[in-house]
């Protein structure tokens, strides 16, 4: 029965919503106090460029997919495809703008395969992208003679790579600007736009969306192309930052992107994925990675720290939610 309990749970609701923010603020404070090097402009910039910008772009793509009710295990493949395409084009003396386009096109090919498998043929996204993950990894080994990187150390690339990876605008590094633009655009599309509504409806109630006259095929097609494109952008950024294409480096972003998107869902009581939630998830992961390093934690223990952190955020938001209910 619809016995409304509207006001009683409100305080708990607010608190639960901010469990993620509390965790983030707490960690930030902890590292600021325990590692003198943490709260310096240089280090914060370092976090943003090396831990947040690229992962953020990938994770926002993941947010689109998760909101549509899917999961994308091929995000690293699209990222690598772009990196490979971009690096390969540069070594073939193709002009930078065209090289970037080629890289993004390579990522979109991965997206197009997903569109065919998931939007059109309605395969389970987990299985479809898992298959693509396997194929993508083998393909990279085959294309690079077993996995040798393409180095872009040559001076002739320095300008273009520097412009993407190491430049800044008014003191803000380019990758961070790219993330900000991507996030702003994604926010408008997902949270203010028609497409966002359609994606959200398909994710929550695919049949009701279909019965409302929404073309689930076209909406899902756009979701998977957007996700691939964002992974592609991340791939270009990564390649420019590390000045090389290293096969299968996309793997390192897969779990973090999924983690950030799902940690982000705890931001709201209704558990829906959101661009801002994902960004906080990314920041949280970035701060933890960097902070643990600074306080001298063994590299091998970092993942333990992150795992414990995820538990802590979940427990906190669950506890606060219960608190509000009784």
């Amino acid at each position: 029965m619809s016995i409304a309990l509207p006001r009683a749970g409100l305080i708990g609701e607010r608190l639960a919503a901010s469990a993620l923010l509390i965790a983030f603020a707490g960690l930030f404070l902890f590292f600021a106090l325990s590692a003198p090097a943490f709260l310096t402009a240089g280090n914060l910039k370092n976090i943003l460029v090396n831990n947040v910008a690229i992962l953020g772009v990938v994770a926002i793509g993941m947010t689109f997919v998760v909101k549509s009710g899917g999961i994308d295990l091929s995000t690293g493949v699209a990222l690598d495809a772009a990196g490979f395409g971009f690096a390969f084009a540069l070594t073939a003396a193709i002009a930078a703008p065209l090289a970037i386009s080629l890289g993004l096109a390579a990522a979109l090919v991965v997206g197009a395969v997903n569109v065919l498998l998931i939007a059109r043929l309605r395969l389970n996204p987990f299985l479809a992208t898992l298959a693509l993950l396997f194929i993508g990894q083998s393909a990279q080994r085959l294309l690079t003679g077993g996995g040798s990187p393409i180095y872009l150390g040559n001076r002739s690339y320095a300008d273009v790579l520097g412009a993407i990876g190491r430049s800044d605008l008014l003191g803000i590094p380019t990758p961070v600007i790219v993330l900000a633009l991507v996030a702003a655009l994604a926010f408008v599309i997902l949270h203010r736009g028609r497409l966002g509504r359609e994606i959200s409806a398909i994710g929550a109630a695919p049949e009701a969306a279909h019965y409302s006259g929404i073309s689930t095929t076209f909406v899902l097609a756009r979701v998977w192309l957007i996700a691939a494109l964002l992974s592609g952008i991340a791939g270009i950024l990564l390649t420019a930052t590390v000045r090389s294409y290293i096969p299968m480096s996309g793997n390192g972003y897969l779990l973090d992107a999924i983690g950030a998107a799902f940690i982000g869902t705890t931001l709201r009581r209704d558990g829906r994925p959101s661009v801002h939630g994902t960004l906080i998830g990314v920041l949280l992961l970035g701060v933890v990675r960097n902070g643990l390093l600074l306080i001298g934690w063994n590299f091998y223990w970092q993942q333990v720290g992150i795992g414990v952190l995820v538990f802590a955020v979940l427990a906190l938001s669950y506890g606060l939610r219960r608190e509000g209910r009784h």
């Binding site: 028609r194 959200s200 409806a201 109630a205 009701a208 969306a209 019965y211 409302s212």
Partner: peptide, 27 residues
């Protein structure tokens, strides 16, 4: 098939009228 129970009344009503309510892709 009729409603998305995890969405609000507002969002459900909008779902059948997205064309009417959107300008330039924004609701």
């Amino acid at each position: 098939q009729g409603v998305s129970v995890s969405h609000s009344i507002r969002e459900n009503i909008t779902l059948g009228n997205l064309g009417l309510l959107s300008r330039l892709g924004l609701v």
